[in-house]
Amino acid sequence: MAGRKGRRSWGRIRKMRSGRYQAAYIATNGTGPWTAPTTFTAKMDAEAWLAAERRLLETGAWTPPPTRTQDAAGTERDLTVADYVAQWLDEARSRLKASTMDGYGRYAELITGGLGGVALAALTPAQVRTWRSSLDPAFPTRNAGAYGLLRTIMNTAVNDELVEANPCKVRGGAVKHRKHEPVALSPNEIRAVAAAVPVERWRALVLLLGFSGLRYGEAIALRRRDITMTDDEVAVHVRRATVRAGRKWVTDRPKTPAAVRTVPLPRELRDALREHIDAYAEPGADGLVFPAPGGGPAHRQPFANALRKGAEAQGFPTLRIHDLRHSALTNWGRAGATLADLLALGGHTTAALTARYTHAAPERNAALAAKVWRE
């Protein structure tokens, strides 16, 4: 008999703010609480679910509810990899950024395309290894991301006690190998590339990226009030980032607290930034500094096309937008920045990340070798 708060002699029913009912219970083996995979419109339906669960316990046919699901006809079947991936993504949606979820959605398609029909509890290391090796080698970074997501999801399944051990055991399966060798430009080369960009509105953005090390999404999210330009200081204050998630722009806080930072700029950039703001920035303190010609966030492709032409004219045909970030961090290192400096300026949380984005200069290595000989 249920009490005022929905408590019963076995199990518990709770009325939610939505008006629907949630049912849960502790199994006879002491595990739980196990909650119904859905809420119920009527209280009697929640009671019926509890009664069915109790029958399973009494007959010895019980398994944890998360390992069970139903097909279209209502017949119970084993929880598949596709079922659990969908459940994991749904639970992650409230805590992850839209851009991250967009990427995870693409990785999930690769996972379910090859392993979706396999029962979660029956997934083996051999099946995972075969799936990982079947991915198109032309996309190594994407493949590593998909494998990394599967490994993370299966770790959650282990914690949920749905599987005994994580079957993702491919050595190096989540390691992202560079397909493109980054180009590190010197300060003179950055200025030369910016001057060679055929579209004038993008020249200041090349200079900003090349001397600040901001990510592209951080730069296009800058507003007038985020830039300090005085006789004594030129700096940008990174407070947000803009990314493309699906077919819409999303502007939000940066991915990590470390990415919220102030980055000093050479004072020599003051005039170029002022000229750009006067000519192209949106009006008002909250106006975008680098908007698209028609307003709103600057699309990546038009800028990339202009940068490519300027870079090719200066003899750097493989230069990409992200190489400007590499260049800034590398030049700071050449100038004597410590690891702590680079972590703060780049907005990184670990030294490993900073190492990925810096680029050793041959002349710097030669100078170090000469110094070792002398000392």
Rank of each mutant, 00 (worst) to 15 (best):
T28L: 13
T28E: 12
N29F: 04
N29Q: 06
G30F: 00
G30V: 00
G32S: 03
W34H: 15
T35E: 03
A36C: 10
T38H: 11
T38S: 10
T39Y: 01
F40N: 03
K43P: 00
A46P: 04
A46G: 07
W49S: 06
W49Q: 02
W49F: 07
L50Q: 05
A51T: 04
R55I: 12
L56G: 06
L56Y: 03
L56N: 12
L57F: 03
G60A: 11
A61E: 15
A61P: 05
A61N: 14
A61Y: 08
W62S: 09
T63V: 14
T63K: 14
P65Q: 09
T67E: 15
T67V: 08
T69G: 03
A72M: 11
A72I: 09
G74I: 07
E76N: 04
E76D: 12
D78N: 09
D78K: 11
T80E: 13
T80W: 12
V81E: 11
V81W: 08
A82F: 05
D83T: 09
Y84C: 02
V85T: 11
V85C: 13
A86Y: 05
L89F: 10
R93M: 04
L96A: 06
K97M: 11
K97R: 15
G103S: 06
G103I: 08
Y104A: 04
Y104R: 14
R106S: 13
R106D: 10
R106K: 14
A108H: 00
L110N: 04
T112D: 02
T112K: 05
G113M: 06
G113A: 01
L115T: 05
L115P: 03
L115A: 05
G117Y: 01
V118L: 01
V118S: 06
A119P: 02
A122S: 15
P125A: 00
A126K: 08
A126W: 00
A126V: 06
W131S: 04
R132D: 05
L135C: 05
P140F: 07
R142N: 07
A146R: 02
Y147M: 04
G148C: 02
G148N: 01
G148P: 00
L150F: 11
T152C: 08
I153F: 10
